[in-house]
Amino acid sequence: MSANSSNREDFPISPKLGKGLRLFFYSQLFVTPKLPTQSFAKQTVIVTGANSGLGLEAAQHFYQLNSARLILAVRTIAKGQEAKEYILRNNPQRSDPDAIEIWSLDLSSTKLTLAFADRVKTDLPRLDILINNAGINPPEWKVYEGYEQAIQVNVLNTFLLALSLLPKLEASATLAEKESHPHLVIVSSEAHRLTNFPEINAPELYAKLNEKSNFSQQPRYQATKLMEVLFTRELVARLGSSTRVIINLVNPGLCTSNLERNNGKPPTVLRLVRRILDRTTEVGSRTLVLGASAPASSHGEFQSDGANQDVEAWIYTEVGQRAQKKVFEQTLQILEARKPGIAYEAGLRDV
C-alpha cells in the first residue's frame, strides 16, 4: 500500500450530497429569512467587505436598526465612501452620518490586517459585533505571502482578525446590556458540504493546498468554507465556558452578488437557473444580521435562514473530530507565526 493511499484512509470523508442538495434547494426555493428587527442601539459593529454585496446590505440593516457606531471595513476607501452614501441615501430617517465610518482593511496582507486590529483596540471604546464577511472565490491561481489567495483571505487572515479582536469583544461584554452578548460571526456557506477535502490527508495541510497543480476554483472555495466550519467549531470547543462572546457561522445562501465577479459571463442555462434560485443580496444579508443577534444557543453553531442547522454529517464523527483538530492546530501555527501570543491572548490557554 502506498503512503498516499494510507494517508487517504486516515480521513475517509464522504459527503452526503443528496441530503445537502435537498437542504439547499428547499431553502433557496421555499424559505425567506425573516427581516431582522432587534435594535443595535448603543452597539459598535464592524462589517468586513462592506462596500458591496452582502456586506453592504448587512451594514445597511445595522444602520437601520440604530447601531451607534458602524465601521465599514473595506479594501478601497473610495468604494467605502460610495457605500456610506448609498446607506445614507436610503435611510433619511437617521440624521447622524458620522455614525458610519470607513476603515481600510485588506485581508490579503497580514501587516494591514494586524494594523486594522490594532486600530480597533486603540480607537474603539467597545466592540459588540464583528461580522467576518469579506471573502473571495477567485478563478485564477495567485499567491499572497506564500499562500494561495483564497486560503489567505478566507481562512488565514479571517481568523487572524477574529482571534486578534476576540479579547476586545470579551472586554466589551461587561458594557453590553444584560440581555445582549458580543457576537463574532463567520460568514460561511453550504459549499462546505460539497467537498471530500482530499488535502486533509496530507501530513502538512497547507503545503498541499499550496500545490498549484491541485488548484481548481470551486473545489478550493468549498475547502475554504469547510475549513471555516472546522476551525470555528474547534475554537468554540477549546474556549469552553471561558468566553462570553457568542461565536457562530452563518450561511446566507446563494445570492446575486459580486463574489464571482471575475468569472466571466456564465452560460445561458446557468444564468436562467441562477435567476430562479438566487436570493437578492438584501435577503441573504438578513442572515448575517440575524446571526449577530442570535441567542446563546447559536454559540458554535452553523446557522441557515436565521436558525441553527446541522453541518455536514461526517463532521460529527470521529473522522470529523480529527479533521477539525488538524485544521485548527495547523492553522494556529501559522497565526502564531504572524502574531506571536495570539492564542493565549484569545483565551486559548492550553494550546
Rank of each mutant, 00 (worst) to 15 (best):
P138S: 15
S285Q: 01
A58S: 12
E85Q: 15
P219Y: 00
A99I: 07
I342H: 06
D98E: 14
N90S: 13
P198S: 06
H61V: 02
R89C: 12
L130I: 09
L166A: 06
L272N: 12
Q330K: 08
I247C: 02
F302S: 01
F197Q: 05
V31L: 04
S27W: 11
L21P: 09
G53C: 02
I276C: 10
L239H: 07
K225V: 05
Y206N: 05
S172G: 14
L124I: 05
K208V: 04
L35T: 15
L70T: 03
E148P: 03
L112V: 12
N196Q: 08
L105W: 04
K111H: 13
P182W: 00
Y206S: 03
T281G: 00
T243Q: 06
P219A: 00
L17Y: 14
W103C: 08
F116E: 05
T195M: 04
C255L: 00
L175F: 14
L348V: 05
D118V: 03
E82N: 14
L56V: 05
A41F: 11
A323E: 09
G20A: 15
N66R: 13
L194W: 07
P252L: 00
E282A: 09
S285F: 02
S67A: 15
P167Q: 09
A191E: 06
H61E: 15
S242Q: 12
F30V: 02
I46N: 04
T113C: 04
H61A: 10
P15I: 02
N91A: 07
A171K: 14
I77S: 10
L130K: 06
E345W: 04
N196G: 01
F215S: 06
L226E: 06
P167E: 14
S188H: 06
L166R: 03
G53I: 05
S5E: 15
P340H: 00
Q324S: 15
V245S: 02
S180T: 14
E148A: 03
E85T: 11
S213E: 14
K79L: 09
F40R: 01
K225Q: 07
M227A: 08
W141F: 13
P267I: 05
G300C: 06
Y26Q: 13
A337V: 11
A307F: 10
N137E: 08
G320K: 04
V236D: 08
V289T: 02
R94W: 10
R271F: 02
D98P: 08
V245N: 04
L205N: 05
I131F: 09
T268G: 09
T232A: 03
M227F: 10
F159K: 11
N154F: 07
L35A: 13
I315V: 15
G306C: 01
E282R: 09
K225H: 07
G264R: 10
P36G: 07
S67D: 08
Q81W: 11
I186W: 12
P267A: 08
P182K: 04
E199R: 11
V283Y: 01
W103I: 09
E228W: 08
R279K: 11
L88P: 04
V311Q: 05
L88F: 03
A296I: 10
V289Y: 10
E177I: 08
T122I: 09
F159D: 10
V283L: 05
S6D: 15
V155I: 11
L160M: 03
L254T: 00
K34Y: 10
K339H: 13
N263W: 14
G291R: 01
L235F: 01
L184C: 05
V185M: 10
P252F: 00
L175V: 13
F11I: 11
H181G: 07
R69G: 05
V273D: 10
